[in-house]
Amino acid sequence: NLGVIKVPDARVDALAAIYQPRKTTYAEVSFVDFPPARSAPERRTVLDAATVAQLRDADALVEVVRGFPDVAGAPPTPAADLESFAAELVLADLAVIEKRLERLKKEKGHERERALLERLAPSLEAGTPLRTLGLAPEERALLAGFAFLSLRPLLVVLNVPEAAAAVPLPEEVAARARAEGAEAMALSARLEAEIAELEPADRDAFLADLGLAESARARFIRASYALLDLISFLTTGEDECRAWPIRRGTTALKAAGKVHSDIERGFIRAEVIAYDEFMRLGSEAKCREAGKL
């Protein structure tokens, strides 16, 4: 079940208003709705192999947590649910490390990898997700092939009843998410579905009535974009105004390759205008005159 969301970007809207391009393209993020996590029948606390394999395939995880009474009327226990889900991810990672260390016993070399895994195992045994350990980039690179679940960026979404949509995230949930190195937000999926049904013109008034400044959808998309550590660079002209997603820290050379591989191969330099300068001065020519290009 795959969904693609356009990332709202007021800068793209503003540039499109100036250039009136034939086409406007927003950055996009893909979302996959995985089947519900199920415990392996033989060990209640461990996710089954199929679920683990699916989770490993994602670049980041969004964990939806129940913030409303269940069908039997039992009150929600979001902090406990978060904790037990985190424990499952940690156990799945620990199993991978133990298996790998077992194999490394029989192989020579791999000293750095062995040392790192031996250092991570006790943290996992203590229930600490890998993402909270502040691993250095070179350590992360060493671990990249393992696709550790507790190292994946995580956004916690507390799904609350409509009446609680404007209530701040409960502190116990916020604290639990912080402890796991995760971002967290509350939203009411039911309310969002209602908002989506409304005419765009009616949405703002509806949100204001509920005491909300914007839809949770916009907050969710921004949070997901940040979770993936993505930023956009913008290109504009008569043909197209477009936001291009790149990882934070991507070089101009690699970013150019997003537009076309030829541009990456033949790259000499990039002439860049900061968005704020462009908006302040109003045109490319004025930015050039002012030495802002």
Partner: peptide, 22 residues
């Protein structure tokens, strides 16, 4: 880039998915 939605059964994961991607 792909974001995976997960969670325990009964948390309303698919409702969230549909509301946000629909």
């Amino acid at each position: 880039m792909k974001v995976g939605l997960t969670g325990f059964p009964g948390a309303g994961k698919t409702t969230v998915f549909n509301a946000l991607t629909g």
